[in-house]
Design a binder for these strands. Structure first.
Lengths: 331, 331
DNA sequence: CTGAAAGCGCTTACAG
DNA sequence: CTGAAAGCGCTTACAG
């Protein structure tokens, strides 16, 4: 292994000078700097990250905890986060968690990473609370946990649900059902609350049959929609708590010869890329993934720079994207 | 920060003994071991990864370079790799690369990661060749680069194309077109070669109009299919070099009132989750993502353990999954 | 602007 | 089975 000592020898300077060129670049005569740089190239030097990290206390890596990459919303979020951290000169360690996952918090404790973004359902685990007590840099993205003293970025899912209700009501679609996963993640529960309350307030409570199955997958949406229709519920609209569920619901509608949107309106949530594909042409509530990721990455970077700054909670307002699964006629 | 020295003090032993408990666990009296473990808990100790890594020369992290998470095949691969590395006790640093990306190779040089899996198009960049000369652990997954002296796992894309041709020919679908991206990644070029050669050999060369546009996205498939049909080509089957392109092609067929499969057969590649959704019900060439990821992770682990072991090249044989976009009647 | 030296927190021979 | 000590490869005061 080539070390800074080898470079020093080759350049005829002390090891300390090599290190200065590497880290600050200041307090070095330009001529010396160039000579050292040249020597680095000649001997094929690359600084040892562990040694640097041990001295500086920083690793240059951050963690991202995501779940369920089969829902395209999550890869989109991951890709956006990757871009943001890349621009910030940070590497990204990824945990793909099924449920709660404290590996990332452990990694912070071991100083493998400098901070972490959680995009998964985060219960107030003791580990998380301890980490925050320790002033570990943690950002919650796409999740709001009211009691938690940490930076958070989330869209207002209650408003997201309300927007859908208002839209349906404005167009006389009053016999609405809700399809979610179960148990509902807080984000989805909020969507349901906003939606259901608004409909109820307008005098059109959701059908009791607004049921949900399993996870948040296509299969789950398919099953939920099937049961909904089998139950004989008279519905003219269905709001699914994410796009993938809505795709499943659409497939059921199609298979049964229901015309969308004439007979049934279908609304999703997330505005994933696929929602705009002609096969689906899905009206959905848009979450600006790029913006969300950008804000989250930025908050984490600032938190790492200053562990005691006041906590920030950013709430994004989602908006409705109207497409053929509701608005247009004759598709 | 709590160090092993603090633990030693609390347990009434030397720092070396704490370290022994931590690393090997051997050569320590059971009673001592328990006392140290207890002290660790009491003082809230977590070993410093950088210090460990500096001594051992290993980081416990591996890199994965993926591209284009909008193609669901890649998230599936990433998720499978994440699972495999997790089971091996390794963290996963992810680079989402648009083109060639040497950041991961740089990270190996700096000892931020112990090895890397490339799942992206890898030209024989000088950096990669240098890395291999240095015996850096590198595995190519889903990419075969014949000249490259490194472990590789890929499916046989030529055979994949041939399988499709044989299938079409066996069912009398002889006026076939190919839709790919451009420029073709080697994987896709192989699929085209296998497909085109087999069709030509049987006396049914592909239409000249077998064109391709842009990337490997839905939009690209949509545009290619549109041009294909606009050109007036008389085709009864189209083979798309991946599923996402096929979804775009299917949407065009639908929009134009072409019946699939009666008027047109559509075949994809990858067997992503979505291919089985009723909206698409796509016949496609299956790549076993889990197996591929498992093999790749395993090769990397073994390569890291033994940098001089002979290179392995694993070739997987893809198989055809027949669904409604070709076989069934009346959908 | 540069060098000698201390030290980051571990692991691991080397003695005992 | 345990401790004292060296050293992994850097960064950064401290002198000059």
């Amino acid at each position: 292994m080539v070390t800074s000592r080898d470079v020093a020898r080759a350049a005829g300077v002390s090891q300390a000078t090599v290190s200065r060129v590497l880290s600050s670049g200041t307090n070095v005569r330009e001529e010396t700097r160039l000579r050292v740089l040249e020597a680095m190239r000649t001997v094929g030097y690359a600084p040892n990250a562990a040694a640097q990290s041990m001295k500086t206390g920083r690793t240059g890596s951050v963690g991202v905890v995501v779940s369920d990459l089969t829902n395209p919303f999550h890869p989109q979020l991951l890709e956006a986060l990757g871009g943001a951290f890349d621009r910030a000169g940070l590497r990204m360690t990824v945990w793909i968690a099924d449920a709660k996952n404290d590996a990332a918090l452990q990694a912070i404790r071991e100083r493998s990473i400098d901070g972490v973004v959680f995009t998964t359902a985060t219960t107030q685990s003791q580990e998380l609370i301890d980490a925050l007590d320790r002033r570990s840099p943690v950002v919650l993205l796409n999740r709001a946990v009211p009691g938690l003293e940490c930076d958070q970025v989330a869209s207002d899912n209650v408003v997201g649900g309300e927007v859908v209700a208002d839209y349906l009501l404005a167009h006389g679609r009053t016999r609405a059902a809700f399809v979610g996963g179960t148990p509902l993640a807080s984000t989805l529960a909020d969507r349901r609350t906003g939606f259901g309350d608004r409909m109820a307030t307008a005098g059109f409570p959701l059908a009791d049959t607004s049921i949900a199955h399993g996870d948040y997958s296509h299969a789950s949406g398919y099953r939920s929609m099937t049961e909904l229709l089998d139950s004989g519920a008279e519905i003219d609209a269905v709001f699914c708590s994410n796009d993938v569920l809505a795709f499943g619901a659409l497939d059921v509608a199609r298979a049964r010869g229901l015309r969308v949107p004439e007979d049934l309106w279908v609304v999703g949530y997330d505005d994933t890329d696929m929602a705009s594909w002609e096969s689906f042409d899905l009206t959905t509530v848009r979450q600006d993934v790029s913006q969300m990721a950008e804000l989250g990455a930025d908050l984490l970077v600032r938190r790492m720079a200053d562990p005691v700054r006041p906590v920030e909670r950013v709430v994004l307002t989602p908006d409705l994207v109207v497409r053929g699964s509701t608005a247009h006629a004759g598709r």
